[in-house]
Design a protein around this nucleic acid. Sequence first.
DNA 1: TCAAATCCTGACCGATCGGTCAGTACTGTG
DNA 2: CACAGTACTGACCGATCGGTCAGGATTTGA
Lengths: 184, 184
Amino acid sequence: MADLTALKAAALTEFAASGYLGTSIARIAERAGVSKASVLYHFESKEALLASAVGSAIEELEHLLDRVGTGDLGLEERKVFVEGFVQFLLRNRLAVHIFMNQRGTLADLTVMRRADALIERIAQFLMERTASLDEHMRFGIALGGAAYLLANAGVLPGPQPDDIEVRESLNRILIGLLVPEAAR
Amino acid sequence: MADLTALKAAALTEFAASGYLGTSIARIAERAGVSKASVLYHFESKEALLASAVGSAIEELEHLLDRVGTGDLGLEERKVFVEGFVQFLLRNRLAVHIFMNQRGTLADLTVMRRADALIERIAQFLMERTASLDEHMRFGIALGGAAYLLANAGVLPGPQPDDIEVRESLNRILIGLLVPEAAR
DNA sequence: TCAAATCCTGACCGATCGGTCAGTACTGTG
DNA sequence: CACAGTACTGACCGATCGGTCAGGATTTGA
């Protein structure tokens, strides 16, 4: 029996490095050491394979957003969210890379619309009260920049581990940008 | 005679919206009102069409970097660069979208390697002296976030014009992040 | 006016893709 | 042993893609 986890990992790596459209099922199969037909035996389609490969990342982000709730934005809740978000980014670099860089191109795939809904929730959570253009832009730059930076930092080399220094630096910068009321 | 400018504009729009791999020459031809063979009469290949479509954006960024020089980073030079960079982003949203989201996928295309070299120059220009991890991360977040935010803000709807308010807000935020010595 | 150059197109080609299918090998169970 | 279910594969199919080509239409210029 084939290792479905290894199959999903191979798909995630290839989809992030070469893009969903630029990756053939045959190449994923080759990387995992099975035949193309075998891949399609375990996953009913290429799209289903992508959905399965990024599924855990989507669920992790959903849980993070559920935990923080939809209520009004407390100062402490924001800090908690930022730290959880940074952890999510560091643990799901490849999936985040796919979301960030292929969102528009793959807008017709169900799984991508699901990811879009999560981004929408984050935006609402952070911007509910603030109407100033400067704050909107700063929030967008902070979240988009952090996600993009981590997702694209060496997709192929991937040397940086879940470095604790990087995580703490990110926490500091993002809290400074997203929770301006926080003591400085 | 076909309007080569319209052809390049159609290609730029489709490549940004659907991705280079997800866009067929036939669709670009249809959008421009000509035949597929006619497109390939004016551009020797799909890759050459992409290079031509993003060419002016690349040249504009090259000139910006040449103007600012490679010498040591003066405080005023940084401000000038930031404002020029923001203007570049606002004037080349579609090309920036392609660079940001398809850099890895299209790494084998000559024009993409040229764009990569420019990103490298920007990084060197801003980080020459500073070795602190926090500053590296903050610079990356600021530049990447601003570029990503603008490039992906409504690729299809594209309602926002070169809004003067957006430009000034961006200048303020980026100068605050990239030129910390600046008066506040 | 006429020939050369330019512009443009439909028809075609080989390659690649996602997906199907019939059949084989293996494994567990009664 | 017999049988059933699971895992897996090579061969194949229709569709789409980038690119070629021979030839028709249009423009140019002497």
